[in-house]
Amino acid sequence: MSSWLPTNPSSRRWLGLAPTYLVIGIFMLIPMIIMGTYSFMEANPYGGVKPVFSTAAYLQLAWEYDLDGTLVFNPGYLKIIWRSIGLSTMATVICLIFGFPVAYYITLQPENRRNFYIYLITIPFWTNLLIRTFAWIIILGRNGVIELPLLSLGIIDKSLRMMYSDGAIAIGLTYSYLPLMVLPIYASLEKLDFRLLEAASDLYSSRLEIMTKIVIPLSKPGIIAGCILVFIPCLGAFIAPNLLGGGKKLMLGSLVQFQFASARNWPFGSALSMLMLAVVVMALIFYARGAKKRAAGAES
């Protein structure tokens, strides 16, 4: 290896990183830049764009052209964005409430059992999301696993219409990304020194106070990471709103897909994607700031 590789450590580094930069740079970064440019162009009704500068795609988020050509406020898309944020927030909060005690419970277990629980929780994460969401159709659907016994026992006499509702989407989103909440919280709880809990208890803390004054503040990085990891994919979710919302209850993700697959409005789809990226960047900045503050607090 030493015979043909450069000996300068800097050249070696960049040679080693070159494939990564080439692949992710060309097939991910450049496409996103192109997408950004497309969002400022005019739509071509046959797909693609006309290379003319235009802010129409962004205007379309909140306004539309009336028959006589004047801009009028149209909250249709804003409502979808708002619903996406609402449903994503709801799913994130449910994931947090449901997931935190589980992550905490796992940290209390002996090591080999901890690993086994983590394995159990990661399994669904590694299996196909589409299939897992499809399973919920069987559970929530008309004559599904929940309805059928209730119907046959006469507890209800007509369908509960659980499918194609915001509730169904929220359940689907929660179910999809639950492991992403548990894992980072577990990772930060695992580092928690349990002697601190004993110290708090020794210093007259009730069990609730141990939780609120020691455990939760010290696992905050994990909680924030978990919330970001759940919120971002929820916002861009396509499968859950599509299968469980029946395509009528749109969310940002499915709206984007719709622009490319059916509506053939690429600039608008690109603008919506840029909007999502902006949210991601803000979340990451928020997280990085917190991490920086913690690092500064621990050092100086």
Partner: peptide, 19 residues
């Protein structure tokens, strides 16, 4: 850069690549 695909929502990656 290496973790970029993890941070960007899948749908955004998808349409960027399509474009």
């Amino acid at each position: 850069l290496i973790t970029l695909p993890l941070m960007v929502p899948e749908i955004v990656t998808a349409v960027a690549m399509l474009i």
